[in-house]
Design a protein around this nucleic acid. Structure first.
Lengths: 128, 128
DNA sequence: CCCGGTTTTTACAAAATTTTTACAACACGG
DNA sequence: CCGTGTTGTAAAAATTTTGTAAAAACCGGG
């Protein structure tokens, strides 16, 4: 339940209606079409997916994927998020949420759109 | 199923539409034309073929074929891959994939080209 | 020894990936 | 609204990894 598990209780793969990850083979597919991800892209996605539903602070992401200790100012995380989103195509908005001022959160796919009009609510939700 | 089996469950030979290996006789042929491979070339190809479909990290290849422990920097693996590819001729691209930042993967021949245009995506896909 | 074939190293070129930069757009408290 | 800080984005720069040719080193038989 803690934030960013230390790799134990996790199953070796994730899947929902569209996305599938195999944490052993270290690959992913979207609508059963293989996603070509670079190493960093995969690691970032995997970390988010392993903690689906939980907000992961930038600090933690930078620490776990890049080994950066705090106090490093970089935009590389944002750039990687962007590239991931691009590869997630039409689902990117649903999958990767930005939590302003904190970090990012992966959200499993949900069939039920809250508002069918497409004009979804702002992708944030949070508090420090 | 594990990566780089310890030589047990494997059958004594491999073959697909074009390539054939006999792990006992230790020879190979391409379109029923004998491939003349040096020892290292054969061992490298055999290791890849025995684990067809699986990514084999450079480290493992260097360990198993050369007996190199980690932390050895050498380009000899690349050179051998190149020579193997040359000998695999027109099929080399299909057979031996480069997994950027990780290693190589042998892929059994497939009749069905995913994209007839040839302009395939970059040959990578991966993780740590 | 010397030779022919094999293997490894060297030295760059090319390709792929990652990071930085620079600025636009957005969020939010006051 | 305004100001400040955060995130989005494209494009350039830097870094890392792989491809390749050619030279050097190695090795076993004659």
């Amino acid at each position: 339940m803690g934030l960013v598990q230390t790799a134990s209780n996790s199953s070796y793969r994730y899947h929902d209606a569209h996305l599938e990850l195999d944490f052993i083979r270290k690959d992913a597919s979207l609508d059963s079409h293989r996603l070509v991800l670079t190493r960093k892209e995969y690691e970032l996605l995997a970390l988010l997916v392993e903690n689906a539903g939980e907000i992961i602070p930038r600090q933690i992401l930078l620490m776990r994927v890049w080994g950066y200790s705090n106090e490093i100012r970089t935009r590389t995380l944002d750039v990687h998020i962007r590239r991931l989103r691009k590869k997630l195509g039409q689902y990117s908005e649903q999958y990767i949420e930005t939590i302003f001022g904190i970090g990012y959160r992966f959200q499993p796919f949900r069939m039920t759109q809250r508002f069918p009009t497409g004009m979804s609510a702002s992708p944030m939700a949070v508090g420090a």
